Amino acid sequence: MGNADITLRHIARRRPGDLARVFVPEHRSVEVLGWIDTQVTKLERRLDKALRLRVGGELRVLHVEFCFALRDDVPDQIFEYLGFLFTALRNEAPGEPVPPIESVAVVLSGRRQRLPATGKRRTAWPERRFSGTHFRIDAVYQRTVAELRARGSVFWLVFAPLARDATAAAMREVVAEIHARAAAGEERNELYTALLVMAAIDPWGHNLRKELIMLFDDREMEKKLLRSMPIIGEMILEAERQAAQRGEKRGEKRGEKRGEKRGEKRGEKRGEQKGEQKAIAELLGRLFARRVGRRPTAEEEQSIVERALAMGPGEVEDALLDLDAEALVRWLSEPTVTSLSKP
Score class of each variant (00 low, 15 high):
Ile213Pro: 01
Glu282Leu: 02
Leu148Thr: 00
Asp73Thr: 09
Arg262Cys: 02
Gly2Trp: 07
Met214Arg: 15
Asp72Trp: 03
His27Lys: 15
Leu212Tyr: 12
Ile304Val: 13
Leu287Pro: 00
Ala160Cys: 15
Thr133Ser: 10
Gln273Asp: 08
Val337Tyr: 03
Glu44Trp: 11
Arg54Glu: 14
Gly275Trp: 05
Ala88Val: 01
Arg270Met: 11
Thr41Phe: 04
Gln113Gly: 08
Gly251Val: 04
Leu148Asn: 00
Leu51Glu: 12
Trp204Cys: 05
Thr38Ser: 09
Tyr141Asp: 15
Ala310Glu: 15
Arg90Trp: 08
Thr87Ala: 15
Gln273Met: 08
Glu190Trp: 02
Lys42Met: 10
Leu328His: 04
Pro25Gly: 02
Ser103Ile: 07
Ala169Ser: 14
Ile101Thr: 03
Met1His: 12
Asp72Ala: 14
Thr338Ile: 05
Ala325Asp: 10
Pro335Gly: 06
Glu65Tyr: 02
Leu208Val: 04
Arg13Glu: 14
Arg209Asn: 03
Ala298Val: 09
Val316Glu: 04
Ile280Met: 01
Arg172Pro: 03
Gly255Asp: 07
Asp217Met: 07
Glu147Met: 05
Glu147Ser: 10
Gln302Glu: 14
Ile231Asp: 12
Arg258Ile: 00
Ala243Lys: 14
His27Val: 08
Pro16Ala: 09
Arg90Ile: 00
Arg164Phe: 05
Gly271Ile: 00
Asp73Gln: 06
Ile201Gln: 13
Leu33Gln: 13
Val61Tyr: 09
Asp318Ala: 11
Val154Glu: 15
Val107Asp: 02
Thr7Ala: 15
Ala150His: 12
